[in-house]
Simulated assay, not measured.
Amino acid sequence: MNDTPTPYTDAPEDIKTQEPRLWCDDGWTARVIKNEDDDGWAVEMTKDGEAEPALVGPWTMGRDKKNPKPLDSPAFITLVKTANEVLRRHEQQLHATLHKSVTIDAADGRLTVKLDIVPDEDEPYAVLSAYDASGEQLAEVHVAPTYKLNVQRASEWAAGGFGKQG
């Protein structure tokens, strides 16, 4: 007989709930709620550990036209796929907002100028950098996080020697 205690395995991510209005599985919770905008129902999808739902959408009425249609496995799988896609698009949009790049033709040839915003809560800043065609970094400076990178500004920065004092 083994006297070794069994490790606690009922952590929240291990709990599966499959109720008509609440479904928890695969790192997600689907909850059918009363739609505040009308007489219908909505479903919210919340990723485990997150305070806010990643997705809220309309939910189908049941046959009695008063209560919501119960959650089931196929609906939950579709909701998880949709919520994951929403999160993926949000991450792509955030990345595009924080990381910009332009390519310019300068005296030294084709250059890539990048702007990487660091959204620090206390002191946000951005890093402006230039790279030659082989990927070697030519310059890097800190700029305001509100700096607007475009081809003209990048070209002027390169033409001015990247702000280096010579």
Rank of each mutant, 00 (worst) to 15 (best):
T4E: 15
P5M: 09
P7T: 07
Y8W: 10
T9N: 12
D10V: 03
A11I: 06
E13C: 04
D14F: 03
D14H: 13
K16G: 01
T17I: 15
Q18N: 10
E19R: 15
E19F: 09
P20S: 12
P20H: 10
R21Q: 14
W23C: 08
W23R: 12
W23A: 04
C24L: 14
D25W: 05
G27M: 04
G27I: 03
A30P: 00
A30M: 05
R31W: 02
R31I: 01
V32E: 00
V32A: 03
D38S: 15
D39G: 10
W41N: 03
A42Q: 14
M45P: 13
M45D: 02
G49N: 11
G49Y: 12
A51P: 11
P53M: 05
L55E: 02
L55C: 09
V56T: 14
V56H: 05
W59H: 13
W59S: 12
T60Q: 11
M61I: 06
D64I: 11
N67C: 07
P68G: 04
P70R: 08
D72I: 06
S73I: 08
S73W: 12
I77P: 02
L79H: 06
K81E: 12
K81M: 07
K81A: 15
A83T: 02
N84E: 15
V86T: 09
L87C: 12
L87E: 15
L87V: 13
L87H: 10
R89V: 08
H90M: 14
Q93S: 14
L94G: 01
H95I: 03
L98G: 02
H99Y: 02
K100C: 04
K100G: 01
S101T: 09
T103N: 10
D108F: 05
D108Q: 07
T112E: 04
T112Y: 01
T112H: 01
V113D: 00
V113A: 06
V113W: 00
V113Y: 03
K114S: 04
L115D: 00
I117S: 04
V118K: 13
V118G: 07
D120I: 12
D120V: 11
E121S: 14
D122V: 15
P124D: 06
Y125S: 03
A126R: 02
V127M: 07
V127I: 15
L128G: 00
S129N: 03
S129C: 07
S129Y: 00
A130D: 00
A130P: 00
Y131N: 02
Y131H: 15
Y131G: 05
A133V: 05
A133R: 08
A133T: 07
G135K: 15
G135H: 13
E136H: 08
E140T: 11
V141N: 07
H142W: 11
H142R: 11
A144M: 12
P145H: 05
K148F: 01
L149W: 03
L149P: 04
V151H: 06
Q152T: 14
Q152S: 14
R153T: 11
R153G: 01
A154V: 08
E156H: 12
W157F: 10
A158E: 01
A158M: 04
A158Q: 02
A159P: 00
A159N: 13
G160C: 06
G161Y: 05
G163F: 06
G163R: 07
K164S: 09
Q165T: 09
G166I: 05
